[in-house]
Amino acid sequence: MPAACATTTGGVLSAYSYIAPLLTGRAGIAAGLVPLVLVGFGVGALAGSLAGGRLGDARPHTTTIAAAAGATVLLPAICLLSTHAGATVVLVALLGFFGLGANPVLISLPVRFAGDAPTLASALSVSAFNVGTAAGSWIAGRALDSALGATGPAVVGAAIAALTLIPTITIAVVQRRRSALPAH
């Protein structure tokens, strides 16, 4: 799960960290309105965390896979539609919802299986989120200065978010196989 924590947050926050140049330079949103778009991301993230926590209680693997897939689709959509202000604002809010919606599950699963070390599992998850944020933001900053320009961070974010599908799908398959084994 630490890999999923790092990639899910790394993907979303690499794009989010450098969203202002995309909003002002490509979408044509006035600099004074950027904070309102960021509020939209925050509201989306809050709603996503609440929904992800609720859904994750019943279907944790489906929730983590759906959130990662959603972020993986939304980030390229932001690049492609970034010249349309309204669409970009909606996509940024949806990115908050899907991009951070799995975080409660990504913390609870390791804690659930940590045995006698739930605090260590939680700390490891949070550390992985921070590593993903730092690494993703660093790479995205380099992409911002590349030929990709203002869309560079979202391109990097899409690639990193897509990597989240590897551990989340792998863990879901392993869990399903374990559940299918006859009890001894």
Rank of each mutant, 00 (worst) to 15 (best):
Leu75Gly: 04
His184Phe: 13
Ala147Phe: 07
Val131Tyr: 05
Arg178Phe: 02
Ala159Tyr: 05
Leu46Asp: 08
His184Trp: 13
Val37Leu: 01
Ala147Ile: 03
Ala180Glu: 11
Ala93Val: 02
Pro182Leu: 10
Arg26Trp: 01
Ala117Gln: 12
Gly10Cys: 04
His61Ala: 13
Ile171Glu: 14
Ser127Asn: 11
Leu95Arg: 05
Thr8Arg: 11
Leu80Asn: 03
Ala66Val: 14
Ala140Ser: 08
Gly56Val: 10
Gly53Asn: 08
Val111Lys: 03
Ile65Pro: 02
Leu181Lys: 14
Thr72Gln: 04
Ile65Gln: 05
Ser127Arg: 06
Leu46Asn: 06
Leu148Asp: 00
Leu124Thr: 12
Gly52Trp: 09
His184Asn: 13
Phe41Glu: 09
His61Gly: 15
Gly48Val: 10
Cys79Glu: 00
His61Asn: 14
Ser122Met: 12
Val174Gln: 13
Gly149Ala: 15
Ser146Glu: 01
Leu95Phe: 03
Thr170Asn: 12
Ile78Met: 05
Thr9His: 13
Tyr18Met: 08
Ala159Trp: 11
Leu100Ile: 13
Gly32Asn: 10
Ala135Cys: 12
Leu13Trp: 15
Ser179Gln: 15
Ala134Trp: 05
Gly115Phe: 05
Leu91Gln: 02
Ala20Pro: 04
Thr164Pro: 04
Leu81Trp: 06
Val92Met: 00
Thr151Phe: 01
Gly141Thr: 07
Thr119Pro: 00
Pro153Tyr: 06
Gly99Trp: 05
Leu120Gly: 09
Ala161Phe: 07
Ala6Glu: 03
Leu120Val: 12
Val131Asn: 03
Phe113Lys: 08
Thr72His: 07
Arg26Gly: 01
Arg59Glu: 07
Ala66Leu: 14
Arg142Ile: 11
Ala45Glu: 02
Gly136Val: 08
Val173Arg: 15
Ala58Trp: 13
Ala135Ile: 15
Leu46Val: 15
Gly101Asn: 08
Ile160Leu: 08
Ala150Val: 00
Ala4Ser: 10
Gly86Cys: 04
Ala180Asp: 09
Val12Leu: 15
Pro2Ala: 13
Leu80Val: 10
Ala183Cys: 10
Ala4His: 04
Ile29Glu: 08
Thr88Met: 03
Thr88Leu: 03
Arg178Cys: 02
Gly99Met: 03
Ser127Tyr: 01
Ala172Ser: 11
Ile65Cys: 07
Thr9Cys: 12
Pro35Gly: 04
Phe41Met: 07
Gly53Asp: 09
Gly40Asp: 09
